[in-house]
Nucleic acid binder design. Structure first.
Ligand code: ZN
Ligand code: ZN
Ligand code: ZN
Ligand code: ZN
Lengths: 153, 153
DNA sequence: GCCGATGTGCAACTGAGTTGCAAGACAAAT
DNA sequence: ATTTGTCTTGCAACTCAGTTGCACATCGGC
């Protein structure tokens, strides 16, 4: 992933009313380059030597969330996964699918999940859907060549 | 909550292939007496002086889950909420509603949430729905008498 | 370039949940 | 009722994502 539009990143930050700093540009870059939701640790790993301090990454993510650039996608094994906020409506984010075999979690950005029916007395502002089952990689593994079980998705 | 059928509790444990012990009966009692999902801490608090050791409560809950008496309802603020497994189908548990104002979480046991449409390549075995918004207690508080904001739901 | 407002790094902390192990309680067999 | 092997419990110490306080560095408007 060769520098995805470094100036656009700066632009994004400014549009969110955020000061442009090195940690913020690199963290945002990592988020945009990632295939799906990522943890603080995964961001740090992806940035390797250039990674800011752990605390800074958390505070940066917090600032991004405040500015609606990023949101918390889901909690898994007691750790948060973050992802860019595009492709999410106010009412509901796309569903996320966790494979019970390989542990990976995919964004089902295509799926149109119906909103919950109204419930007397409640005002539903946001809906979050998590699905579990077998992912394409693990479903009916041809022959014996299954999938190397990775740590995270 | 005056001893909800102590013998039935023993029966439940045995039916799950579990040994009958004091910690198990009291913890199961607390779970059944609770209005909704509860944390380890809330169980301990509800049992007060009679509460078993924290580790024992966790291991007890684990055993209950194994025996399908209890399940993990949802993760909130990095802590698990547990509830009895009745009222849950294999395919999906009832949705849970978290109020963004008072922080309470309610079981929407009545709500019939449609299952996610099939996605090419995936096998969906379980669906979990979390809703957020305003609960009846916080929605349009008449006059100024809102709700005392509690710590947890 | 200067300076107040923001952002960053470090070390120490928090708190839910886990692990290893010795001591205790259950229940099946005698 | 006593024995006996197995499963449970409690304690202390640990883990690990995330947070906090504070001194120092950086940003960007002037
Ligand atoms: Zn898989
Ligand atoms: Zn996603
Ligand atoms: Zn409320
Ligand atoms: Zn529930």
């Amino acid at each position: 992933m060769p520098e995805p539009e470094l100036d656009q990143i700066r632009q994004l930050l400014k549009s969110g009313g955020l000061r442009v700093t090195t940690p913020r540009t690199t963290v945002l870059q990592a988020l945009l380059a990632a295939a799906g939701p990522v943890t603080q640790e995964q961001i740090a790993q992806a940035l390797g030597k250039k990674a800011p301090n752990k605390v800074t990454i958390y505070r940066t993510l917090e600032a991004f969330i405040e500015a609606d650039l990023v949101h918390r996608a889901f909690l898994k094994d007691r750790t948060w996964y973050f992802e860019p906020a595009h492709r999410c409506s106010q009412e509901q984010c796309h569903p996320h699918f966790s494979c019970t075999r390989c542990g990976r979690t995919d964004c089902l950005t295509e799926m149109k999940m119906p909103m919950a029916p109204p419930v007397a007395g409640y005002i539903v502002q946001h809906q979050r859907v998590q699905l579990e089952g077998l992912c394409p990689r693990c479903k009916a593994p041809l022959h014996s060549s299954a999938v190397d079980i990775p740590k995270t998705g």
